Every structure is written in structure tokens, then in C-alpha cells.
Amino acid sequence: MEFKGAMGGIYRLTEWITRFAGANLLWVLCASPFFFFTIVKILVLGQGMTNESLQMNWAIAVVAPFTFFPATAALFGVVRKWVMGDPDVPVFKTFFAGYKDNFKQSMLGGIFYTILFVVMYLDYTVYMTQFQNLQLIGIIMLILLLLLGVSMFNFFSMVVHYHMSIGLIIKNAVLITLIRPFRVFSTLLGAGLVTYIGAQYPALFFFFIGSIIAWFAFFNFYATFTKMQEQIEKMQADQADEEGTLEEPSSESRTELK
């Protein structure tokens, strides 16, 4: 029995490794132009080629909304199934179904986020390098960049979880980020830790890093969503009880006045 249990555990672990690796590889493949320019930027920056590095920044900004964002939304569509208790969905089919269904919204959201990232990054760079007496503003811009990054996780989660207009998705993604600071911190810390490990072992980026971060981010989002739903239902129930309590005395009062 112990042997069968151990073999069953190994089999389940192998299944999960295969799922994470498969989803991650599809994500890397569909976002390959974004990753190509990112890798080139790292290489030219390491060689001190500043002008080429700036050119790569613009190339990354151009391709991100059309490659990275749709691919990441598709990845979130897969991990959403896992988090919600459906681990046996076909990864390939689920990924590309999500890619097709969410392409337009993720692309529009990608344009919005890319413009914000570019503007805020330029502001951060200018304040930190050219205005020594205004570096506090640069630090504030860095904090806002981090919050924007976390709101992007919520954005992807909402794209695959709700049927909403793109404006509402972006608005609610930002609001959830602001009103749930603990979740913001834990998501940021978890993503940072996984990214750090991936930086030590670059091969992990191709097989696990993206899918692990997506799973963790959607897990946090879904926990927040579930808690908020419970709070709303509790508030509605309390309000209904209060209305019922208020109606009875008012009826008695009117009777007595007669």
C-alpha cells in the first residue's frame, strides 16, 4: 500500500510538472518576439551599448501588446482552470482557446499598460539621473511602477474570469490592487522570488517560471475575489435583515397612531 501510494504521488507530481512545463512553453512560444528583444536588450546592455539598448526598449514596447499580453492572458486562462479545481483540462486546447477569446481585450489592455509603463519608466529615469534633488519623486514613481505591475496580474486574472468591458477590467484591476495591500505585497514578493530563482537558472524560464507566477497570481486574485463575494453576500443578508426589522416596528407604529 505504501509503495502504491508513493507511486501515485510520483505520478501526480509528474502530471503537474508536465502541465506547468507545457503551458509555460506555449506561453514562451506565443510571446517569442517579446522575449527575443528582451534577451537582445540584456546582451547589448551587458556590453555597454546604450543606444542599442534604448532601441530594444522601443522594440519591446511595440511588440508587447500584440505578443506578450495575449500569450499571458492565455496562460492565465489555463491556470484559472487549475486553481478552480479542474486540473485535467487539455493544456494545448485550453491555451489556444483562451488566446483566441481574449486576444482583443488583452491587446487593448496591453496598449494601455505599455503606454503607462513607458511614461512612468521615463519619469523614473529622468528624476533619478538628472534631478538629484528630486529623487524622492523618482522613488515614488518606482513604487507606482511596482503597483502597476501587480495590477497587471489582476488585469490578466479579470480578463479570463469575467465578461466585462476593457475599461471596467482595467478600473477594477487597479481598485483591487489598491484595496488589498496584503495581497499586493504577497503577489509582488512571490513573483520576485520566483523571478530571482529563474535568474539563477535561466532554463527554468522556458519551462516553469511564467506558469508558476501566473498560478500564484491567479490564486491570490481568486482568494481576494472569493473573500469579497462573501463580504458582499454578508452585507446583503445583513441589509435584508435590517429592512425586515425596520418594516415591522413601522407597521405597528402606524397601527397605534390610528
Rank of each mutant, 00 (worst) to 15 (best):
M158W: 04
G110T: 09
L116R: 12
F131G: 07
L116F: 04
I115D: 01
L108I: 09
L147T: 04
L148Q: 03
F155C: 02
T129Q: 11
L144I: 08
M120H: 14
F117C: 12
N154M: 04
M107C: 03
M152P: 00
D123Y: 07
L108S: 09
I140H: 10
I137C: 05
M120W: 14
L144T: 04
V126D: 13
S151G: 00
D123E: 12
Y127C: 14
Q130F: 15
F131K: 11
L122K: 09
L146Q: 08
L122G: 12
L145G: 06
V119W: 00
F153Y: 15
I111A: 12
F153G: 05
L144N: 14
L136Q: 12
I139K: 14
Q132A: 08
F117V: 01
Y121R: 10
F155R: 01
F156K: 07
F112M: 05
F117M: 11
F117W: 02
S151T: 04
I111Y: 12
G138K: 02
M128N: 00
Y124T: 01
F155P: 01
L122P: 10
V150Q: 10
L142V: 15
Y113I: 05
M158K: 09
L144Q: 10
M120S: 11
T129D: 13
L134D: 09
I111K: 11
Y121T: 08
L134I: 09
L145T: 02
F153W: 08
V119Q: 11
F117L: 13
G109T: 00
G149K: 01
F117N: 13
I143W: 07
L108M: 09
Q132L: 12
Y127M: 10
V118S: 03
L142N: 06
I115K: 08
N133K: 10
G149I: 01
M107V: 02
F153E: 15
M128H: 06
L148R: 06
L108T: 05
I115W: 00
V119R: 14
M152T: 08
Q135S: 04
T114Q: 07
F156S: 10
L108R: 02
F156E: 02
I139R: 15
Y113V: 04
I111P: 04
L136M: 15
T129H: 12
G109N: 02
M120L: 13
L146E: 13
T125W: 10
Y113S: 07
V119A: 14
